[in-house]
Write a protein that binds this DNA or RNA. Structure first.
Lengths: 128, 128
DNA sequence: TGTTGACTTACACTTAACTCTAAGGTCTAC
DNA sequence: GTAGACCTTAGAGTTAAGTGTAAGTCAACA
């Protein structure tokens, strides 16, 4: 039978607007319809949506995701190209992790700095 | 004497447009001017810009950065509030790092999966 | 039977964060 | 003395990624 757009919205955390937008934009391949023309999602769709969210949330632009997904339709010949794109993205994610770790440290230092300023201010208050 | 906007643009990696935009929006506190009305940045500005970039690049929205920066003008009384905001943001960064690490693994698996499919396809090719 | 709720499409609107353009001022070098 | 490289502001335009609205279909329920 398949899932309604409402169900998929709840399961994926994407709004119904966003799901329709993704299909419209070709990010999500055409979703099957029931006899009334209503979208009828299946488990494969849900899996694909999960991959799309993963790519999106790690900073891949919608346009790139679309390109990646569209390769799936071309079957075996595009497997290595898909793999290449994922590998490229993996490098990107790893860089981002390093970057974030560095910045987490910076922020940590800044926090310590603010704490020391506060302490200093308090000491001065007590002396006055 | 201070640095021109061009110099700061080069040093910070932000475009001149962006630097003016940040000042306009109050993300960057008012920059000093020379006798011709041209912006005249100093080392403190550069430091602040570096902090702003750090916050921005770790996902803090411009509006929140603005709020954080504006607290600086209020002196000692706002130190603990500034520290609180930074701590909050630090939590956010740490979550993001974890999230990215999980997704890096997912992508890794996907890559392995594609590689196995390719291998399979190749074997079938050789047999045919 | 009529109204409520879930769905559809097409299209307009929003938001964040820039990015560019136009029109103009000032300084330096030939 | 004028061309070129700087800078200025105000305000318009762009891009990505949604988000919302209007008008309509359809099925189930009181």
């Amino acid at each position: 039978m398949g899932y309604s757009i409402k169900t998929i919205s709840q399961k994926s955390g994407l709004s119904q607007y966003t799901l329709r937008y993704y299909e419209r934009e070709g990010v999500l391949p055409e979703v099957a319809r029931d006899e009334h023309g209503n979208r009828c999602f299946h488990d494969e769709d849900l899996e694909l949506i999960s991959l799309i969210c993963c790519l999106k949330d790690t900073g891949m632009p919608i346009a790139d995701i679309k390109q990646f997904i569209s390769l799936s339709k071309e079957g075996h010949s595009s497997l290595s190209e898909q793999r290449r794109l994922l590998q490229q993205h993996k490098v990107h994610i790893d860089e981002k992790i390093k970057f974030f770790q560095t910045f987490a440290e910076k922020v940590e230092h800044k926090i310590a700095y603010f704490a020391s300023l506060e302490e200093q201010a308090e000491t001065e208050n007590n002396e006055a």
